[in-house]
C-alpha cells in the first residue's frame, strides 16, 4: 500500500494561510464514502470522484514537469484507490491518502522517465536568493493582484517555483491540507514544510506585485 496514512485529518488547521475550500467536505464524509465503496457501493466512488477529481487533477497539472503525464498519473492514482479499497483504513483522511498516492505516482513517473528531474522534487531548496528577494517584497498590497494579467503572472510564477515549494503550496491551496499533513506526506519536518510554504508565498507575492 502506497501513500501515507496520517493519524489525524487536520485540514483547515492553524497553518497560518487561509484555506480556499469551496467544495470541502468533512473528512468523515470522505471516509464513509470510501468505506461504502469498499463495501460494494459503486455510487460512493462516483461521489468521491466528483468531490476530488478537480483538486487532484489541478495539483497534477501544475506539479507535473510534463503535461503529457497528467492523464496517466491521474488515472493510475484513481485505479490505485479502486484496487486498494479493501485495504483502506479510516486512520487517515481520504484526501491526504489520495494526494499521497498521486504524489508517489508522479515521483515514480519522474524516476522512470526523467530521473534528472527527480532531485528537484526531493531535495530541499529553501535558501535561494530569490527567496530573500521575495521575502523583502512581502509588504506589497494584495489589492493589486487582480485581472487576467495577474492570473497569468501567478501561473507563470507558480511554474517557476522550485518543485518542493510548489508542491507545498499546491497541497495547501489545491488539496486544502494542513502543514502537519503536508510535512507527513512529503516526509520532511514540520518546520521545513512551513519554510517552503513561506518561500513559495513570498515569491508569488513578489511576482504579482511586479505585475501590478
Amino acid at each position: 500500500m502506497e501513500g501515507y496514512h496520517p493519524s489525524v485529518d487536520s485540514a483547515g488547521g492553524e497553518s497560518g494561510i487561509p484555506l480556499h475550500s469551496p467544495a470541502m467536505q468533512p473528512a468523515h464524509d470522505d471516509t464513509a464514502l470510501m468505506l461504502a465503496y469498499a463495501g460494494g457501493e459503486a455510487v460512493a466512488f462516483e461521489r468521491l470522484y466528483a468531490l476530488h477529481k478537480a483538486g487532484l487533477y489541478g495539483f497534477l497539472h501544475r506539479q507535473s514537469p510534463r503535461t503529457a503525464w497528467v492523464d496517466d498519473v491521474f488515472q493510475e492514482t484513481w485505479l490505485a484507490v479502486v484496487n486498494a479499497r479493501h485495504d483502506y483504513r479510516p486512520t487517515a483522511s481520504f484526501r491526504t491518502w489520495l494526494f499521497g498516492i498521486a504524489r508517489n505516482k508522479l515521483i515514480d513517473r519522474i524516476r522512470l522517465k526523467e530521473p534528472a528531474l527527480l532531485g528537484d522534487f526531493l531535495n530541499e531548496d529553501d535558501e535561494d536568493p530569490l527567496a530573500r528577494v521575495a521575502g523583502d517584497s512581502r509588504q506589497e498590497p494584495a489589492s493589486r493582484l487582480e485581472g487576467k494579467q495577474a492570473g497569468q503572472a501567478l501561473d507563470t510564477a507558480l511554474r517557476a517555483l522550485p518543485a518542493v515549494q510548489r508542491e507545498v503550496f499546491l497541497l495547501r491551496e489545491q488539496a486544502e491540507m494542513s502543514l502537519e499533513d503536508i510535512a507527513a506526506l512529503t516526509g520532511v519536518p514540520m518546520e521545513t514544510a512551513k519554510s517552503r510554504l513561506r518561500y513559495a508565498v513570498a515569491k508569488l507575492k513578489a511576482t504579482l506585485a511586479g505585475v501590478s
Binding site: 497560518g16 494561510i17 487561509p18 484555506l19 480556499h20 469551496p22 465503496y37 459503486a42 466512488f45 462516483e46 470522484y49 477529481k53 478537480a54 487533477y57 489541478g58 497539472h61 497528467v70 492523464d71 491521474f74 488515472q75 484513481w78 485505479l79 479502486v82 512581502r138 506589497e140 498590497p141 494584495a142 489589492s143 493582484l145 487582480e146 495577474a150 492570473g151 501567478l154 501561473d155 507558480l158 491551496e173 508565498v201 508569488l204 507575492k205 504579482l208
Partner: peptide
Amino acid sequence: DDKALSQAYAALEQPLPPPALDSAILAAAR
C-alpha cells in the same frame, strides 16, 4: 496578502480531466 493570494490562485483556470478519462475511471471502479 495571504488571503488575496489564495483568492488569486482560486481565480486561476482550474483544469479538469477529459470526459473520456472520467468515464473510463468510473467504469473501472464499477
